[in-house]
């Protein structure tokens, strides 16, 4: 029973840790499917986390916090669009710039506004998204096997967790069952064809980037308002890049993205749980090895040793109407 409980606990933290990855990964999916590389997921999450926690602390409302997070994150996404769509700048360079501006400004503004060494004030219960207990979770808790699964894994998360997982089928539906999704995929593969059909390439790509901004905003809000009770400097700590890795790992598909994020979340959860205790067969595994594993796996995948990751064809290439 102890092992079972331990597994439930690890899976529970897997869910919690993979939610920000999943949101950022789906965010990246929208922009990359539309042909815009986005290295700036990390930065957009960071400003989202900062804006969310600041607004929630000032206005004492979790919803206002979430709204602000989305607003600011979308604004950064539009800067990326302005540089890479309107001015046909290098998308990677623009993404790198956004990451730096985000990293610097969140610390500077946080220190100037709240004077707590770059932190935002600790959020009170009403200013955070509370866990939702599903009906009957307490009653069924003591039933073996099913009880813990229902009470721990399915029930007891905040609304943003359910939102993240609901976004997976929703994104699939948007991408493969709507006109917008079809056009978005087309603009990522062959923008000239979309242009010939009389549809604005730029406006489509801008819309995709707005979707990206919304999702990274939610991801940031989750970090600072659910996982943590406030903003801490540099709190994304590379999650935007792991999400990027997960996106490649998922071959730019929404359902795969969920599994990739769950896998990377599980690796994270397992490395926290193990912390130096030996594994059967392999012995003691250094925590750093587990931390590096998502990156190593992605490199191996990219090298074509586990299937082949083929990015959207027009990714990273600015669209020029006439040559």
């Amino acid at each position: 029973m102890d092992i079972f409980n331990a597994i439930i606990q690890v899976l529970d933290s897997t869910i919690r840790l993979s939610v920000p990855l999943l949101l950022a990964c789906l965010a990246g999916l929208y922009s990359e499917r539309a042909g815009i590389f986005d290295i700036g997921l990390e930065g957009k999450m960071l400003v989202g986390a900062f804006a969310g926690a600041s607004a929630a602390a000032v206005f004492h409302s979790a919803l206002i916090g979430l709204g602000t997070a989305i607003l600011i994150s979308v604004a950064f996404a539009l800067v990326h669009g302005f540089a890479s769509i309107t001015h046909r700048g290098n998308q990677i360079v623009s993404g790198v710039a956004i990451n730096f501006i985000a990293a610097g400004s969140t610390i500077i503004l946080g220190q100037a506004w709240f004077q707590q060494g770059g932190r935002t004030p600790a959020l009170q219960p009403g200013e955070r998204f509370a866990a939702i207990t599903w009906p009957g979770a307490d009653a069924i808790k003591d039933v073996p096997i099913i009880g813990p699964i229902y009470a721990e894994l399915i029930s007891g998360h905040s609304i943003l967790v359910y939102f993240a997982f609901a976004m997976v089928p929703f994104t699939w539906w948007v991408l493969f069952r709507t006109r917008f999704g079809l056009r978005m995929r087309a603009v990522g593969e062959n923008p000239a064809a979309v242009d010939t059909a009389g549809i604005s390439v730029a406006w489509l790509r801008y819309r995709a980037l707005i979707c990206t901004g919304i999702l990274t905003g939610v991801a940031g809000a989750y970090l600072s308002m659910v996982q943590n009770g406030g903003f801490v400097k540099d709190m994304t700590a590379g999650k935007g890049y792991i999400a990027l890795a997960a996106l490649i790992f998922a071959k730019w598909k929404p359902v795969n993205a969920m599994f990739a994020c769950l896998l990377f979340g599980f690796l994270d959860a397992a490395s926290i749980r193990l912390q130096g205790s030996p594994l059967p067969l392999v012995g003691k595994v250094p925590a750093q090895f587990m931390q590096a594993l998502p990156y190593v796996l992605t490199v191996i995948l990219l090298a074509g040793f586990i299937g082949k990751a083929i990015p959207p064809r027009a990714g990273g290439v600015p669209y020029v109407k006439e040559r």
């Binding site: 800067v79 302005f82 540089a83 890479s84 001015h87 046909r88 700048g89 290098n90 998308q91 360079v93 623009s94 790198v96 710039a97 956004i98 990451n99 730096f100 501006i101 985000a102 990293a103 610097g104 400004s105 610390i107 500077i108």
Partner: peptide, 20 residues
């Protein structure tokens, strides 16, 4: 950290928006 912002802005304006 102000430098980090300046660095980002330089990359943005001298890099991504160089043709603006």
């Amino acid at each position: 950290d102000m430098i980090v912002i300046i660095q980002g802005l330089v990359i943005l304006f001298a890099g991504a928006l160089e043709h603006m």
